[in-house]
Amino acid sequence: MEYFLQLVLNGLFVGAFYGLVALGYSMVYGIIKLLNFAHGDIYMLGAFAGYTMLTIGAGALGGGSLVALVVILIIAMILTGTLGLVLERVAYRPLRSAPRLSVLITAVGASFALEYGIAVLYGPNPRVYPVGFGNAAIEIFGARLTWAQLFMMLVAVLLMVALDTWVGRTRSGRAMRAISQDPKACLLMGINVDNVISRTFFIGSALAGAGGVMAGAYYGKIDFLMGFIIGLKAFTAAVIGGIGNIRGAVLGAVVLGLLESFGTAWLGSEWRDVFAFGFLILFLTVRPTGLLGERVTERV
């Protein structure tokens, strides 16, 4: 029983990470139907932004205190958000009316550019994050959850709830949903479509950046390729949940986290990625619209 609960907690924790990255993936796909393969690298940039600030400004911010970490998290989110916005402006917007394959290839190119750009700046070797969380943990019915894990899950949930409210209730969020359905009609509503797309990239990238900082602080090591696998995992999560659907991205991330957690327990950790991507293929074959895939019977 304890073991089972432990696996669930591990799965939820990993799922929260995947969720932060998957949201941006799914939002961007929803609004411009682009698989932004550079999205995982934005997560990596978030980790490096946090690393740089901690290395340079740790003394000024009072070392590795929780407050300092939150401040750095916010700054890193703004930085990565801006980077995502610039990426869209420079790499994707000029190709708005180009065939989708061209944009997809550009996204792969952008991914490599970011990865090896960081490799040039920081070197190819892993960097050690200057702060880490302690191992203090709480016990829940015999299962262990560190305070750090709990804290990060809370932050992730908080960000997700904020996003969900923004998308569901506000004028901008409504515009975002409208654009994902019919960008041309949105022009006739007086929506500056480019602005809303920029905003979407900003928010999605900021969330990924937050995930990156938390990953750095939690795992303690970062490198320029760290975004690659998580990008693919986030994509998998988005597909499982129904790509383009925001709640679906979170649901898919949690499902993927749990699947990995249990799959690893049964088959051994070397099977984790096989298991995860096996599920991607399964979903693409059996239910390509995902768990919450958006469909409505339309009458004409």
Binding site: R171, M189, E294
Partner: peptide
């Protein structure tokens, strides 16, 4: 204001949300 051919309403937004979008500006 231009009401396009084929109506182009937002099929996955509610009727009320469609009206709200109309007042975007």
């Amino acid at each position: 204001i231009h009401v396009p051919e084929g109506r182009r309403i937002f099929s996955r937004l509610t009727v009320h949300e469609n009206l709200q979008i109309g007042g975007y500006t």
